[in-house]
């Protein structure tokens, strides 16, 4: 509960790469209804949009954010030293800091959007993002320090991007431990939670080792998402409003051209829930 007696509303954006742009659609609906968000939690791609919303970006500004974050060159630069370590582990010394794609472009993009010096203390409403401890596998909540680095850490898809050090821990993508971090909002004192989640797509056909591994991770992440959400629902049922947009077509991770379509889906899904949300806000 906030000081003025108003219930505190949290927006939680789960992992889902560029599909997290559906958060823009959700924000459009909230803007129309004049409903303010009091805190934002993001995981992986959700951290990009979450941080921007916490910064006070409007829905229109967020569309621009998508284009700045997922530039077409983001996956272009290969990290050859990682590739050599993977193929010849003994000769080149295999270590935990594997990342096939050089992360410099991605890190620069995030800094361009948020500014290199911006910290969590600068956001308009509190923002939290989640990552995973590579060694213990446990979820880690980041709520202070440089915003851009935290976002880069949270969206560090393992194998693709290298893990990064943060306060003595080696961290990777939050999706591996907490793909839809509703619990972070609960612990931060949210009364009502809009949880925007995405199911990782399964492969249509498995015909390369990459496909094979990606199918394994998608299955695990889907199951993890479902189990965690079932638990949150059981433990805190009435306060969580789940929005899970479905996408019939496959959306590649940096396909910016699909953003308008994704935003539309997000808005449509949010509109289905707005009546209940208003009711719940009034009742609290």
């Amino acid at each position: 509960m906030k000081k003025d007696g108003r219930p505190s509303l949290a927006l939680v954006i789960g992992s889902g790469g560029i599909k997290c742009a559906a958060a823009i659609g959700v924000l459009q609906v909230l803007e129309t209804e004049n409903i303010a968000i009091d805190m934002v939690v993001g995981c992986s791609g959700g951290a990009v949009y979450g941080a921007a919303i916490a910064q006070g970006f409007s829905a229109d500004q967020l569309v621009e954010t998508s284009a700045k974050a997922w530039t077409s060159d983001i996956t272009r630069r290969i990290n050859f030293s990682s590739l050599l370590k993977i193929i010849f582990p003994k000769r080149f010394g295999f270590d935990d800091e594997i990342g096939i794609i050089d992360d410099r472009i991605m890190a620069e993009n995030i800094e361009t959007i948020f500014g290199a010096k911006t910290t969590f203390a600068d956001t308009r409403v509190p923002f939290y993002c989640v990552a995973t401890d590579f060694h213990t596998g446990e979820p880690v909540v980041i709520s202070k320090g440089k915003l851009a680095k935290a976002i880069r850490i949270s969206s560090g898809i393992p194998i693709v991007f290298k893990p990064l050090e943060w306060e003595g821990k080696l961290l990777i993508d939050g999706a591996l431990s907490n793909p839809l971090p509703v619990d972070v909002a609960i612990k931060a004192g949210a009364d009502l939670i809009i949880a925007l989640g995405f199911e990782p797509p399964l492969e249509h056909s498995v015909n390369s080792p990459v496909n094979f591994a990606s199918q394994m991770f998608s299955i695990l992440e889907n199951q993890l998402l479902a189990k965690k959400f079932a638990f949150y629902n059981l433990a805190y049922h009435s306060e969580i409003i789940a929005i899970v947009p479905e996408f019939k077509e496959k959306i590649r991770c940096n396909d910016v051209s699909k953003v308008p379509f994704i935003v539309d889906q997000g808005r449509r899904e949010a509109e289905k829930h707005i009546h209940y949300l208003k009711q719940a806000l009034a009742m609290k």
Partner: peptide, 15 residues
């Protein structure tokens, strides 16, 4: 690399 993949899937399965 296969150790690495199994470690990652272990993280997910443990969670």
């Amino acid at each position: 690399f296969s150790d690495y993949l199994l470690h990652l899937s272990g993280i997910l399965s443990n969670n």
